[in-house]
Design a protein around this nucleic acid. Structure first.
Lengths: 226, 226
DNA sequence: CATTTTGCGATAGTGATGCTATTATATTTG
DNA sequence: CAAATATAATAGCATCACTATCGCAAAATG
């Protein structure tokens, strides 16, 4: 990872926290440990009490940073999408071929993170696992509407829009670019989850990049001109 | 709806209940009202106490039927998939053209239910809404593995397999039929949810069957031979 | 027809969860 | 050094997720 990236900071929408966890040691500990704890026990079983025990603080300290655990999940997913958007822009910027550009983007969206960038206190490999298995819970709630008003899905939408624009660059007549890309992003998460627990819903073979290949084939076949 | 269908009963995997809710009036009330209550307040806020109040019974009565609320969600989704599988088999049985067959199947999988069949105490329109917004929670848990061992996803897998076979009937060389169909099923739910709350992730226009059209186009384009 | 069985209601209780509040003690900053 | 701020420690409360017990009435059984 480039040196200067280790200095970069990701700004997360202020409406998800009471006090920015990135401004204090405790706050960063809350974030890094909530990632580990959610990965370990799942979001349903994750509580402020358990997190407090992990970081050696009472629950009340965590309540000063976040209203509730749902906001922590939002914080983590926003951070993740911001980080991904950054990498997306960076890794596609100098590609001239529209097909090559889209191809690179899809890979970035669907392939799992395999190594920590050490670019912050956040472990991206574990965070990626959380996004795969928990992020759908951030929008399948009765509060989506309000969360959306607070702008928490802004980065995600922009990311989808960026890749949708790449689709349109190849075929300006394609009617459903956003639908296609959001299906790819969420579908890839689901397929990774299924591959692990319900493999008969997939066609994933060990050691092969079936999920990546499938989604790339799906995208390019779907958007082709008739 | 055909007369004889009103007599049909859907058998749900015994491992999800302690006592079959379909064998008593109270049990059926528990099911029909849990559908209404989950739709109303969301699965997160759904509790046995609230359900008890709705049916005029203490919580303890509900605990005689179900171990916990997660099992009720499993019961509802299994019922839904069984019902859908039945309708799928029925509505595709006499179609000779493989393309027409697959086309009919996809429509059945992605289109929302618009009228109650009156075929039981279960309101399928509302149940369909629940499946759209809550069913992912039945497998995005730390217990998927065990639930899977109990066979609770069997019907769902069989349904996906049936449609995958239709794909293979059109193109036997297509490598990812199960992945494609499970992506369609789950993707359709997500797109309906997004259309309602995060429309910029979709390209849904009022009064148009964009979701159906998109998925049909996606499937047929993806599986075509080169 | 007597008698088990069952289904349900009523009530109580336990420990965990999801918070809020208070006060005391550090730590930082001006 | 004083003032402001952050955290720890503790308590408390309503709800939740469940378990246990008891008694009654209806239904099944012999």
């Amino acid at each position: 990872m480039e040196e200067f990236l280790t200095q970069m900071r990701i700004q997360v929408n202020k409406r998800v926290f009471l006090k920015d966890p990135d401004t204090s040691e405790k706050g960063r500990k809350i974030i890094s440990n909530s990632i580990l704890l959610i990965d370990e026990i799942g979001f349903e079983n994750f509580t402020f009490k358990k997190l407090g025990m992990k970081i050696g603080s009472p629950e009340s300290t965590i309540y000063r940073y976040f209203e509730n655990k749902h906001k922590i999940l939002l914080y983590l997913t926003i951070w993740y999408w911001s980080w991904l958007e950054y990498r997306l822009v960076f890794s596609t910027i100098n590609i001239n071929s529209p097909e090559e550009k889209l191809n690179t983007a899809i890979k970035l969206l669907v392939e799992p993170i395999k190594e920590d960038s050490d670019f912050s206190h956040i472990n991206e490999v574990v965070l990626n696992r959380i996004v795969i298995s928990e992020s759908a819970k951030s929008y399948f709630t009765k509060d989506v509407g309000e969360d959306n008003k607070d702008g928490v899905f802004k980065v995600y939408k922009r990311l989808v829009q960026r890749v949708s624009d790449m689709v349109l660059a190849i075929n300006p007549d394609f009617e459903y670019p956003n639908m296609l890309i959001s299906t790819v992003v969420e579908g890839a998460h689901q397929q990774r989850h299924f591959a692990k627990y319900l493999p008969s819903l997939t066609n994933v073979r060990k050691g092969k990049k079936d999920i990546t290949n499938f989604f790339i084939q799906m995208v390019f076949n779907t958007i082709q001109k008739k």
